[in-house]
Nucleic acid binder design. Structure first.
Lengths: 118, 118
DNA sequence: TCTTGACTTGAAGTTTGCTTGAGCTGATAA
DNA sequence: TTATCAGCTCAAGCAAACTTCAAGTCAAGA
């Protein structure tokens, strides 16, 4: 698959995909003889994974470390730990969201009665 | 309350509070004769509200519009609509988080079996 | 053959959301 | 009384995460 097709498939720009590869957020993408990127299934899976993680705000830095370890084939324990850490962060964030949504619910339900109140 | 006390109470720097006021994220804070900010209960509530919203990623722009309307005392319907819009965004975000956490759960549970997989 | 369009790299630019610094005032403590 | 806070404003600076630009390559169609 060309970068154009992949960017279409995942709804992100080709520039972002190149940027992700450049900074090591996805492993190097296979190339054709002429140097043009030729995304295989593996590469696409990476894009999907990273897109999902980024959509939830997982830090780029953590993902870069994860990708780098996976490429070297080392640090299984560390890799798992990264996933566990990030999951904890997301769970926290989910909890924060829950309370904020509740607060908004309350304000919306009582809107007419509230004046000048934050 | 002084800005120092408020920054302590909400665990954010005085600089951030001044910044929030400057850009209109919170209404102008009352001042003492000498120009020093003197946060009253209302002002503190605003800080708490904005901090909560920002922690969940509500956009500053939306909050600025909300604050500005509330100060002018106009646009009740619009204000409510802003809250509803932002709630929808957060609900979306919560759903995204849920699926990402699930994905991480799965990977963590099956980590030993997975090699070279994103 | 020429040109069109997708691709390449590397570097510079942009946006968001603070953060820091410079230079000031005014109140309090040794 | 001096010095040390806490606060003030305004402007510049910074980090993250892209985004855009400049300059070039390459393959395919009219």
């Amino acid at each position: 698959m060309t970068i154009g097709e992949v960017s279409e498939k995942f709804q992100m720009t080709a520039d972002t995909l190149r940027y992700y590869e450049r900074i090591g957020l996805i492993p190097p993408v296979p190339r054709k003889k002429n140097g043009i990127r030729d995304f295989d299934e593996q590469a696409c899976k990476w894009v999907g994974f990273v897109k999902c993680m980024r959509a939830s705000g997982v830090q780029i830095e953590a993902l870069i470390e994860y990708v780098s370890l996976l490429q070297k084939g080392t640090g299984i324990e560390r890799r798992k730990q990264i996933l566990i850490e990030q999951r904890a962060r997301l769970q926290n964030q989910a909890e924060t969201l829950r309370t904020t949504i509740e607060r908004l619910d309350y304000k919306i339900d009582h809107y007419e009665e509230m004046f000048k109140q934050p």
